[in-house]
């Protein structure tokens, strides 16, 4: 499994950045399939107002340990050639991307299943916290749905 150089990205994750990671995987390993998950901040409307963005904080050292553990687990279980996890830290506006998971494998089924399982594990096991910021500057700590 090629080493991933970083987990956290300051602010939103751009489409250009995602494309560059795919190009990197292309040159590192010769997969037959990629699966990509990108999570985007929704402008949800709550009783407090409309979500303008999410401010992310993390226990970075623990998250880095945990991300490596999850990458190894998923790589072995699904026989993947590459696994990348990128998560935003700091403020991400509604309509921008804050989580990217890319898996690659020889065949499509392994890449798709590995990506899907990894996204669920990230939601429950990565020590990251999001605070939804509303249009009147009030905020609420986000809760992940099962």
């Amino acid at each position: 499994m090629p080493v991933q150089d970083m987990l956290f990205i300051q602010g939103a994750i751009s489409a250009d950045f995602i494309m560059r990671q795919i190009e990197k995987i292309q040159s590192e390993s010769n997969p037959g399939a990629y699966s990509l998950f990108a999570g985007q901040v929704r402008p949800d409307v709550h009783e407090k107002g409309t979500v303008m963005g999410i401010d992310y904080t993390a226990y970075e050292k623990m998250a880095e340990h945990k991300a490596e553990e999850l990458r190894s687990l998923i790589t072995e279980k699904h026989n993947l050639t590459s696994v990348c996890i990128y998560h935003s830290i700091g403020f991400v506006k509604a309509g921008e991307i804050s989580l990217v998971v890319i898996t690659a494998s020889k065949h499509r089924k392994a890449a798709i299943e590995g990506c899907s399982e990894l996204v669920e594990l990230i939601k429950t096991e990565l020590p990251v916290w999001g605070r939804e910021v509303y249009d009147d500057n009030q905020y609420k700590w986000k809760e992940n749905n099962p």
Partner: peptide, 12 residues
Amino acid sequence: SEVALLPPYSGG
């Protein structure tokens, strides 16, 4: 040791 208090995670 490094001790931390962690509320439920809400990344992604």
